[in-house]
Nucleic acid binder design. Structure first.
Lengths: 206, 206, 206, 206
DNA sequence: AATTAAGCGAGACGGTACGTCGTGTCTTGAG
DNA sequence: CTCAAGACACGACGTACCGTCTCGCTTAATT
């Protein structure tokens, strides 16, 4: 809560309202016209702001969009299920719902695409969006361990590897289902995925 | 009985060599200058082809890149493993290798990102790239069934749902690992993923 | 009426209908869409002819247009006036009328413009269009001389210089009036011009 | 009382230097590569200016060339002659000289040709080039009237009609001589034309 | 209250790529 | 050898956005 503006601050301060208007306008523009067709001139006009103001705050489209969508992902919570399977289903459904919103799906994939040739952006995405959600896996595992559904892993490095893998599996699978295969992420599908994860292929297919 | 060319058959036919040259030039340009900086003028020049020729065949950058990248995915083959786990590991490693090549990772994510607000492009990606690779899942399942590792599913609709789910899980997980989590897709990781899929979480974590 | 095709003629002969159709289509296109916007593809399509056919007969747009409009200028005749002034007025009005037709005005100026940097085209215009109309000046002078309105010039070279000058004056003035000053070429204006030519400035302005 | 800038006065003002550079580059390009081969991209590059800047000020090639050439016509001055005939000869020779320069002849006829099917362009040519040079006729007439060579016309409308006609005659005749008949505009020819204008045909041919 | 320095809107600027169009040539198969 | 059809290499078109740069005008904190 303390001011961390490093140097002396003279002159007219930056408008806080402008920041909010720009981020909101960015999300609107993403929904309406898509990533590639969205120009920063558009965003500035929608926000009632000069392009200069926008470039004074962000280096480019990528940085702006990451900031504009990062907060949307913090809505995810681990639902109050009574089994590991229910927890998985709950998270999958929430994530699926998030990916149905145009601004989320478009912006997320756009910045991931850009990040394939921009390591700094990749890091920013991971810290600002992805890693924050690993808490869901950790919470879910802990609950399942308390219920006796999963064993305790004593080696911390191994435990982290497990968590990372599970996160990749769940997040990657839902994204692929929603954005590539273009199929619904509904109750039935979520249960099938949860069944596969918990029981393994031979049992799940039996 | 033979001629099924539906409309008229007049005028100079399109050059088959041009198609190949354009697709190859597209891949080269992707590697050398990246998706976003690559212009269709560049591609045309590299291919020794006029821009017109390019636009006569493809509607834009996205469609062109989908086709250019699609061919790369046809390299994937189901390796000659002697167990379901070995087959999964083999495919995962191949796919991981493919995603390490800059043109593949960049182009794939770029078109997926565009496709989030372009249903026609989404369909094209699915038919040109994704659906073609489901053969790997089908082959792998069949081998596993013959070995007795997996049961036979008699209901075709259910069988297809299983295949789709498995494909989403494997493809999505590998993409997420490679492009978002930014971790290596190596032998150890591939075995961990295969173990999870075959045995289920409780066993895999034990 | 005899075939004057110089070498042996083998293969399919050229369609005579095609020539006429192309020239007519050229005139139509000039009227409707103007010189610069008229493409040879347009002309070919209007004539129901392939572009190849067109290029087989003419070297380009300029040559085609010269041929297409040359004959229109042969309509001009020296009217049956009873004085030099009446003859001048009659010719001026006819020429003015010709320049009101869109295809004539556009095509004439277009080829003249092209000819400024193409001596061969300049020659072609002069022989195909301009020089043919000098007959009007020669006829008018002869009549005026017979009426006693103009003296006889005995030196042929001087007589030709006079005729050339008069032609430049009349043709140039009418073109400038019609196409640049954009004023009407009507009876009153024609009489004013004739008066100036015959009586000279001091008298004409008195 | 003073500021009559009609609309808003905001944003960066247009560079006056750019206008001059563009017009000069246009003239250079006309000389070096000719009207039809000259592209606006060329002009922009020669002027060290972006194409955008060029299109912000002119609607197209025609308008630009009209303005670029118009300045050249302002070089014309009424020479310090001591008779009406000398003044006419002086102006004719200057105009003939102007029409010997490739950029002038080509550009002038090209825009006139375009103007035959573009009334707005016709107006622009008239206001930017033609009407400005009528001053020469007005000055010459005034001098001749002071010398007693021409009568005073008291009716303004008639006086204007006279001036317009004389302008059409001189300008049209010189253009026709120079560009169509392709003859020299030299001292002898200029004197013949002046003689015709001042004395009328019967006297001039005597 | 006056000064001052940055923020602000507007929009012009030099660039680059776009997707389309026209040119003149070439390549088919049919006549 | 001609024809209609249309693909081809080339190159200009006019537009859109980029990110930067003036402009003249606020707007606060400092004098």
């Amino acid at each position: 809560m303390q001011s961390r503006t490093p140097p002396a601050r003279t002159g007219r301060p930056r408008s806080a309202a402008a920041d909010a208007a720009i981020l909101a306008a960015t999300r609107d523009a993403l929904v309406e016209i898509g990533w590639s067709r969205m120009s920063l001139g558009d965003v500035a006009q929608r926000a009632g702001v000069a392009k200069t103001t926008l470039y004074r705050r962000w280096a480019g489209k990528n940085e702006l969009v990451v900031d504009a969508v990062a907060e949307l992902f913090d809505e995810l919570v681990l639902p109050d299920g009574d089994s590991l399977a229910a927890d998985v289903v709950g998270v999958v459904l929430q994530f699926g719902e998030l990916l149905r919103r145009p601004e989320t799906r478009t912006a997320l994939m756009a910045v991931v695409a850009e990040s394939t040739s921009d390591p700094a952006l990749r890091l920013r995405i991971r810290t600002a969006i992805v890693d924050r959600q690993k808490r869901l896996v950790l919470q879910g595992r802990e609950r399942a361990q308390r219920r006796g559904e999963l064993p305790y892993e004593t080696e911390p490095a191994v435990a982290e590897q497990h968590a990372d893998l599970i996160f990749d599996v769940i997040a990657g699978t839902v994204v692929h289902r929603a954005l590539v295969s273009d199929g619904p992420v509904d109750e039935a599908w979520a249960q099938a995925l949860a069944g596969l994860l918990i029981a393994g292929l031979p049992t799940a297919m039996a």
